[in-house]
């Protein structure tokens, strides 16, 4: 049952990538910021897991809460301290700021913890496998799929049914006009960063779950995945991010199977070339979406 295994694997990978991309796009939608510090929220989330397990000896559910809270807090604080003051400056100023935040967080962890990787003790369920109609798959993969589905449902309820969600959608469309409706700019932007941090935190659990360790540059790979997935799917709507995540997961798994062993270390390079070629044909990504390019001023 190679096919079922491949399918579960691809869907779970796609789910993880979709969560990652979604966190990036939410902030992009409102602030028009490609957040280079996003990977670091995930990295700090990983350290949250590590410290809650090793220092506090917390049970697994508390670890999860700690990890997610660490990511949310980092995201929120970075908005408060760095992004808010440069918000009305140029787009490049914001971009460079986010890179500086990323470098700062990496080096802060380097100084305060260690340059070396730390093992994160995770509950056994993360390493167990399960047999579904002959397909052997890690339980972790099923957890990712389940979590992603719940998160997507909750998030779309938040966006569609609550006033905050309405305000956030409006702000992604026309920021200044939204403010003129009486919606505080800081509220929607902070909310976007908090949700972005939440998604980074949730992704962090599964990302760390694969290698069971965390180091200061853990955030780099997921950041790149989120970047590429969002440009493929379309940066202009949450739907684009989700679609991009799944497409990228599929591409990754297909290349993993089809590339000869000697070329596997170049997989990222291959994926990237495919993506650039695709973007030349369709620069706006798969889903066009309604976000405008208006910048926050």
């Amino acid at each position: 049952m190679m096919n079922l295994e491949f399918m579960i694997n691809t869907i779970s990978l796609g789910s993880l990538y979709a969560l990652l991309s979604l966190g990036l796009v939410l902030v992009f939608g409102i602030l028009k910021l490609v957040n280079f510090a996003y990977g670091e929220y995930l990295m700090i989330g990983g350290y949250g897991l590590y410290f809650s397990a090793t220092v506090l000896h917390a049970p697994w559910w508390a670890m999860v809460v700690f990890g997610i809270l660490a990511a949310i807090l980092t995201s929120y604080l970075s908005e408060l301290a760095a992004f808010r003051p440069v918000r009305n400056k140029s787009a490049n100023a914001l971009l460079v700021t986010s890179f500086a935040v990323s470098i700062f967080l990496q080096n802060a962890v380097l100084i305060l913890v260690s340059p070396r990787a730390r093992a994160v003790p995770l509950p056994p369920i993360f390493s167990q496998t399960v047999n579904i109609y002959g397909a052997v798959t890690p339980v972790r993969n099923l957890l990712i799929i389940g979590t992603t589905i719940s998160v997507l449902i909750l998030l779309s309820l938040l966006m569609k049914k609550t006033v905050l969600g309405l305000a956030m959608r409006a702000a992604s469309d026309k920021f200044t006009t939204t403010r003129l409706m009486g919606v505080p700019a800081n509220l929607v932007i902070s909310a976007a960063f908090v949700i972005s941090g939440l998604l980074a935190g949730i992704s962090s659990i599964f990302w760390i779950g694969r290698s069971a360790s965390v180091d200061p540059v853990t955030g780099a790979a997921p950041l790149l995945i989120a970047f590429i997935a969002t440009v493929v799917g379309g940066m202009h709507s949450p739907a684009g991010a989700v679609v991009g995540g799944f497409v990228y997961g599929l591409l990754f798994n297909v290349l993993s199977i089809t590339l000869p062993a000697s070329m596997i270390s170049y997989r990222d390079a291959f994926m990237f070339v495919i993506v650039v070629l695709f973007l030349l044909i369709r620069p706006e990504g798969i889903i066009k979406g309604g976000y405008t390019e208006e910048r926050v001023g």
Binding site: V34, F36, L224, F227, T230, V231, M235, V275, L279, P283
Partner: peptide
């Protein structure tokens, strides 16, 4: 251009 350009240069 713009964001797609930045991300692809980064990649």
């Amino acid at each position: 251009s713009d964001f797609v350009g930045v991300i692809t240069l980064f990649a």
